[in-house]
């Protein structure tokens, strides 16, 4: 339906808003990638940062730190969120407990990362010092787990909820126990959704800085244990900008981060599309 003349202006503005959003994204990504991509080389990825983050050095130890911190966060958050989602969706009715848990997860998701960081600093860095080694990979990862949890819990729950009831009834009707139905029918069907939740949580953990700033310590050396202080890529980027004033390494680091986030976006987008198609085909 063609818009009338009097509608050209508002409709044009709406088109403009949509295009502006796209342009903003492209400008930000293109700017950083165009300056950062040429800097990324095998040397850049496998060399340790210099003492003062000077150009010509790499970001090897910071990549390692990001992987370690994110890994700890996922190892803690994944079983909790998937287990929690199964419990909430398969074993409880819509009751008070469920409402309370969901509300709590929602609140947790809305808490600013700096406050989660303050909590992680008090609890993991100071209170649990003998176990976590103070500022360390472990403290940082455990703090991040609190940020990953609400995301992956909610998305896992949505995925389980989207599994048609007939599948469960069919499985139970064939004589499978409840647990057998969950492990052989419900979980495989909901798997793409659950994985999406975990990958999105991973993206949050990779990109998080404020909470890491207060809990991970920021030492640039290669980590040897979970109790070593570490400096993930995001924190390194911040430190370069505020202390070393070396924008070359900063562009490279930012480009690596953006590539990681774009990869995550594409994978989750693709997973969710295939999941929706799969459910429609059932």
């Amino acid at each position: 339906m063609a818009a009338k003349r009097s509608e050209m202006v508002p409709m044009g503005l709406l088109w403009g808003a949509g295009i502006a959003t796209l342009v903003i994204l492209i400008v930000i990504l293109a700017y950083i990638l165009s300056k950062g991509l040429p800097l990324i080389s095998w040397h850049f990825l496998t060399t340790n940062p210099g003492v003062r983050g000077q150009a010509g050095t790499g970001i090897y130890s910071t990549i390692l730190a990001t992987v370690a911190v994110t890994g700890v966060a996922l190892l803690v958050a994944a079983p909790l969120s998937v287990g929690g989602a199964i419990y909430l969706n398969e074993y409880t009715r819509e009751n008070l407990l469920r409402k309370v848990i969901r509300q709590a997860a929602e609140i947790l998701a809305g808490i600013p990362s700096i406050i989660i960081g303050l909590f992680g600093f008090l609890f993991f860095v100071i209170y649990l010092l003998p176990y976590t080694g103070g500022w360390s990979v472990l403290s940082g990862g455990l703090t991040l787990a609190f940020m990953v949890l609400p995301i992956s819990l909610r998305i896992s729950e949505e995925a389980l909820k989207a599994v048609p009831g007939e599948l469960r009834e069919g499985s139970l009707g064939l004589g499978a126990t409840k647990w057998q139905s969950i492990t052989t029918v419900v979980l495989p069907t909901a798997l793409p959704g659950i994985v999406t939740g975990l990958i999105l949580g991973m993206g949050r953990a990779i990109g998080e800085t404020a909470a890491i700033l207060l809990t991970a310590g920021g030492a640039l050396g290669v980590i040897h244990s979970l109790r070593d202080p570490a400096c993930p890529m995001t924190l390194y980027l911040y430190n370069i900008l505020t202390e070393y004033n070396d924008t070359t390494t900063a562009y490279g680091t930012a480009a690596v981060l953006i590539i990681a986030i774009l990869a995550i976006t594409f994978v989750t987008d693709w997973l969710m599309n295939s999941y929706t198609k799969k459910l429609k085909g059932l």
Partner: peptide, 23 residues
């Protein structure tokens, strides 16, 4: 195109936004 772009925009780490803004 736009829907995944918006989620990419949501995923970009805040320190990267800060970096862009600073430069």
């Amino acid at each position: 195109v736009l829907v995944p772009s918006v989620s990419a925009l949501a995923g970009v780490p805040s320190v990267v936004y800060g970096f862009f803004a600073l430069l």
